[in-house]
Design a protein around this nucleic acid. Sequence first.
DNA 1: GCGTGATTACTCGGATACAAGATGTCCGAGTTTGAGCGG
DNA 2: CCGCTCAAACTCGGACATCTTGTATCCGAGTAATCACGC
Lengths: 132, 132
Amino acid sequence: MRFTKATNYALHTMLMLVAASSVKPIGVQQLAESQNVSPTYLSKILTRLVKAGMIESVSGANGGYRLSRKKDDITFLDIIHAIEGNASLFECDFVHGDECLIQAVMKDAEEKMERHLKQTKLVDLVKQQAQA
Amino acid sequence: MRFTKATNYALHTMLMLVAASSVKPIGVQQLAESQNVSPTYLSKILTRLVKAGMIESVSGANGGYRLSRKKDDITFLDIIHAIEGNASLFECDFVHGDECLIQAVMKDAEEKMERHLKQTKLVDLVKQQAQA
DNA sequence: GCGTGATTACTCGGATACAAGATGTCCGAGTTTGAGCGG
DNA sequence: CCGCTCAAACTCGGACATCTTGTATCCGAGTAATCACGC
């Protein structure tokens, strides 16, 4: 029960893209170097973000990745769900007659966490970085 | 990033033990049957709870598991930590100069969840079950 | 100078490899209860 | 009836076995920009 490294890569990459926020795409190599990942692996992660509609890829020379339109409303939860999937963290597959009380508690806890991740946007971090 | 089945087993088993709450221990077989797990596997999980000090095992005939003394203050978080470990869910191992802003956000989110799990006790569920 | 083609710098997707963790199973060893048996 | 022994019913712990998932690598294919070259 831990977040995967892929999520970490995705979050850091997105932070860079939001910070750059320019029209020009940033190449995978550049993004990968600053995180010590192999470019091929990072690109595999980024395709998931593309499918989620938050970034887009530009192929060919001078290609790379850049934010798609909605740029400023991207939350942590968006990215995490794109990478980890939006399945529930806890799933009780037993068949006790009524609803599982344990599952209810776990679901509440999960929602507490998700609420925080949903209300924190990447842009906020960029501003903090700029001040420092 | 999901909770393991072992955690599910542990939570359900603890709920039974708290509900029983008697002096007599309950055998692993009985506990396992009601959850469709093999007794050997369940016992492996329960030893972790023993090491965490929340239950104790009684060996020999008519043996089994029962709560240790502190019985009524056991929280969800206690059990989860005993099974999954108390490591942080998110760990950024990069070396960016200052503290990782992303990690800070994730840690906050995690704490939101843990707070809920810490303030929910198993005894509360037992009472709910009794009412129904 | 201008079009055409080749080269180069990229991303994309699938196939594959490897490691770690989750999920069990099996077995031998220790421990307690209780039954059986002999005095 | 008492005590001793032995079998049965348990848990404990380590050593496997298997399956899934995370973490990557490699390679061929497609695509866009740029460079070279001939007219």
